Simulated assay, not measured.
Amino acid sequence: MEIILKEDIIGLGFKNDIVNVKSGYGRNYLIPQGKGVIASESAKKVLAENLRQQAHKLAAIKDAAQQKADALAGVALTISAKVSATGVTYGSVTAAHVAEELKKLGHDIDRKIIIMRDIKKVGDYVATIQFHKEVTAEIPVTVVAENAPVVAAPVVEEEAPAAAVEEQTEETAE
């Protein structure tokens, strides 16, 4: 059964898309909830006319989504989780955890538009955020152990003070 979606439905499609669904799903859920209409020839013509008239509005929506994606360009997340001795997390790191970390950084992103598998081990992963059907952003996510020892950077002594100390020792020797 072909349905024209009236709103974005995660996992199915975006507003004004024509999708094929099973008859029961369309008849019993999408149409009664007002989330879609049957894609008859007349409905397709009306949709085409509406899309033609709303082209500039759709371009503005896409630009807004692109700006949100550009704001996340340099963002990389590090999420700490409780980990067993074998490197397996207790529980899993989900899209909700990623959304929470992004909120701490000042980016209010709905967890439903974050696409990723549940993370169950320590390591580096990628979360994809789909702002618009043509605009996505990929964010690197690093999962680390909560009680992992922090490796300190090696301390490098500056050569300028050492040279000044050598000059002072030569002057005192004279």
Rank of each mutant, 00 (worst) to 15 (best):
I18G: 04
V19F: 04
V19Q: 06
N20I: 13
N20F: 09
N20D: 14
V21G: 08
V21E: 03
V21D: 01
K22Y: 04
G24V: 05
G24W: 03
Y25N: 05
Y25S: 10
G26Q: 03
R27P: 00
N28M: 05
N28R: 03
L30T: 12
I31P: 00
I31L: 03
P32T: 15
P32A: 11
Q33R: 15
G34S: 13
K35C: 01
K35Q: 11
A39N: 03
E41M: 10
E41T: 14
S42M: 08
K44T: 10
K45C: 06
V46L: 13
V46Q: 12
A48N: 13
A48I: 02
A48P: 06
E49D: 10
E49I: 08
N50G: 02
L51Y: 06
L51G: 00
R52D: 14
R52I: 13
Q54V: 07
A55D: 14
H56V: 14
H56G: 05
H56C: 02
K57R: 15
L58S: 07
A59K: 14
A60V: 13
I61K: 15
I61A: 15
I61Y: 11
D63Q: 15
A64P: 03
A65E: 03
A65Y: 06
Q67Y: 09
Q67V: 15
Q67M: 13
K68M: 11
D70T: 11
A71S: 14
A71C: 03
A73V: 15
G74M: 09
A76Y: 04
L77Y: 09
L77A: 10
T78P: 02
T78H: 01
T78N: 07
S80W: 03
S80I: 02
A81M: 06
A81Q: 05
V83H: 06
V83C: 13
S84C: 01
S84L: 00
A85H: 08
A85N: 13
A85T: 14
V88N: 09
V88T: 15
V88K: 13
T89M: 09
G91N: 08
G91W: 10
G91Y: 11
S92F: 07
S92G: 07
S92I: 01
T94W: 07
T94R: 08
A95T: 09
A96L: 10
H97P: 00
V98A: 05
V98T: 09
A99S: 10
A99M: 00
E101N: 10
E101A: 14
L102A: 08
L102R: 08
K103D: 12
K103T: 11
K104W: 07
L105G: 05
L105D: 05
L105H: 05
L105W: 00
H107P: 10
H107S: 12
H107C: 07
D108E: 11
D108Q: 06
D108I: 09
I109N: 00
I109Y: 04
I109R: 09
D110C: 01
R111K: 14
R111W: 07
R111N: 13
I113H: 07
I114F: 06
I115G: 01
R117L: 09
R117F: 06
D118G: 12
K120L: 03
K121W: 10
K121F: 04
V122S: 09
G123Q: 06
D124V: 10
Y125A: 02
Y125R: 01
Y125H: 11
V126F: 07
V126Q: 12
V126W: 03
A127C: 06
T128I: 11
F131K: 01
K133S: 12
E134N: 14
E134S: 13
V135H: 06
V135N: 09
V135P: 02
V135M: 06
T136R: 13
T136K: 14
